[in-house]
Amino acid sequence: MRVALVCVIGLFACAGATRRAERNAAHTVTLRGSDTMVVLCQRWAQAFREARPDLSVQVGGGGSGVGIAALLNGTTDLAAASRDVEPSELDGLRERGGAPIVLRVAVDALAVYVHEDNALPSLDVASLRALYRGRATHWSDVGRSDASRVVLYGRENSSGTYVYFKEHVLDRFDFAAETQSLPGTAAVIQAVRHDPKGIGYGGFGFAHGVRLVPIAPTRGEPAVVPDERTAIDGSYPLARFLYLVLSDAPTGATRDLVTWVLSDEGQAEVAGAGFFPLPAEVREAERAKLEASAADPADSIEASAADPADSIEASR
């Protein structure tokens, strides 16, 4: 009697667990990675749930590297990356037996802000580097008549923007010790807005009450005004793509999500998060990449074979 009861309870438990696992596999997509992209990913998750109430997206941060590592471990369906995926990471994904896909999903541009009364006409990347390395300390060093000291505002070293700036503007050198660390882009803008001697950097979308400085790629070249067009066509030197990384050709809910991200509705969310939507031809190229992965029969077979394993991971 008791044995039978235990068996029955066990059976129900098993059935429940399997059903839950199935539901998770079919209806939840996990998306982890770049902290820069967390707000964007959350907006996507929310809007996608309205478009497809049967599906839900779980978003997590940790950094681009963390996201790709999770993809390698199979603990996430999608990784968000605000930097290029490194060849070694792609090799790792291929060794797992997949055909990894790196999709460009948005454009991010780093703006350089100064006070509205600051007459600085433009900066080239080398001068910007000299300022933030502490090699140029006064405004007169970078072509303004004013002899006052430059007050540098930056981000905490836990921020992805800090690392991006250090890598691409400072050429992997250090920030000047005097650089004031503020907890977010909004705080940087707030500080620069009240400081005629100040300079700061951060996302495009947040800039209100400050002036965006045109940036020249090198000294002598014309400075490029940061706006949507120059960010997207690549002429603005501090622009980059943001990526979603897949370990293999996507299926089911994951596929629906990435297709939706590249749709008009998905791209409409991008501007709200402070980034720029993809230009039309890039969007077409990324869509073609997705379709090609599905059309390739070898890939789809591999994908379906990998499916059960994925669903187990997802149910954890």
Binding site: R133, N157, Y162, K166, E167, R172, F173, D174, A177
Partner: peptide
């Protein structure tokens, strides 16, 4: 690397 003289530097995230 990248500095002119020996210094005390706290930049834990860097290269």
């Amino acid at each position: 690397p990248g500095y002119d003289e020996p210094l005390h530097v706290w930049q834990p995230v860097g290269f």
